[in-house]
Design a protein around this nucleic acid. Structure first.
Lengths: 133, 133
DNA sequence: TCATCGCTTGACGTGAACGTAAGTTAAACG
DNA sequence: CGTTTAACTTACGTTCACGTCAAGCGATGA
């Protein structure tokens, strides 16, 4: 009853567009903890959830070490009270970081849109002048 | 009349929390083009605008090479028509990347908020049980 | 039984983005 | 005129995040 929903390294790689090397690397960095059947790795639902978060974190520009700390937030089992409080504080900090990043991203999107409008005009001009000639 | 509003490398570093090495590195990578007074670098308003975009791009997880291409969007002088069109296309692509990233960021923020609520409950429980004892 | 396939563990290599140390030069100051 | 001071060049070093062999192990199929 526990055998299903486990994945081999290759299945993982195919599912998440990663390489075996990458998954082993993340394991060495203690980001993933697949179980072992003999020598082979088997990835659980938990590993898949973590991997999703890892890849997402990377797209946001976080380092693997930062991501490792963030991961603890998403699966705080039964930690010590002090540890839980620390984790909680770090989470609120990260949350505010992300909100800031979202504001900046909105700005950037808006600016880029304006540049695109400008570029459209220029392109239209160039097209008009070449047609006139 | 052109002397003001130019900055030395140190002023730039102080203003943008960068190191001289970093600014020279960006120059070597053709991201910045300070003018030279003898051997020394003088950074213009244009350089400052570009540096802001560089630092922002890094926070979004772009590589310097990607950023270099994006920078051309923000100051497309009079380019060739074909080049302008290429640049334009790349910009729309990047824009859609950023919009996607924004959606993901929203998700991430929402999930993290929920985790925080969960953490609050746990903390409250722990506090209650320790007070009862 | 033998060969192939998939996974494994080292171990060294690589590109990006700088850091750092050594030595040089130009301007400014006492 | 000597000496700090600040910026410069050159070049090698470092960290991160993997890539890329090389060699071995375990199941599976002919």
């Amino acid at each position: 009853m526990s055998d299903d929903n486990l994945m081999t390294i290759r299945q993982m790689c195919d599912a998440y567009e990663a390489t075996p090397r990458t998954l082993r690397f993340y394991e060495a960095k203690e980001l993933l903890f697949p179980i072992r059947q003999g020598t082979k790795r088997l990835y659980t639902r938990r590993d898949r959830a973590r991997l999703k978060l890892i890849l997402r974190g990377k797209r946001f520009g976080f380092s693997l070490e930062e991501i490792r700390q963030l991961l603890d937030l998403y699966d705080l089992g039964d930690q010590q009270a002090t540890q839980l409080a620390k984790t909680y504080e770090l989470a609120t900090q990260r949350l505010s970081d992300m909100v800031n990043q979202r504001e900046e991203l909105d700005e950037a999107i808006e600016e880029l849109k304006q540049q695109l409008e400008w570029g459209e005009k220029r392109l239209a001009e160039l097209h008009a002048s070449s047609a006139a000639e």
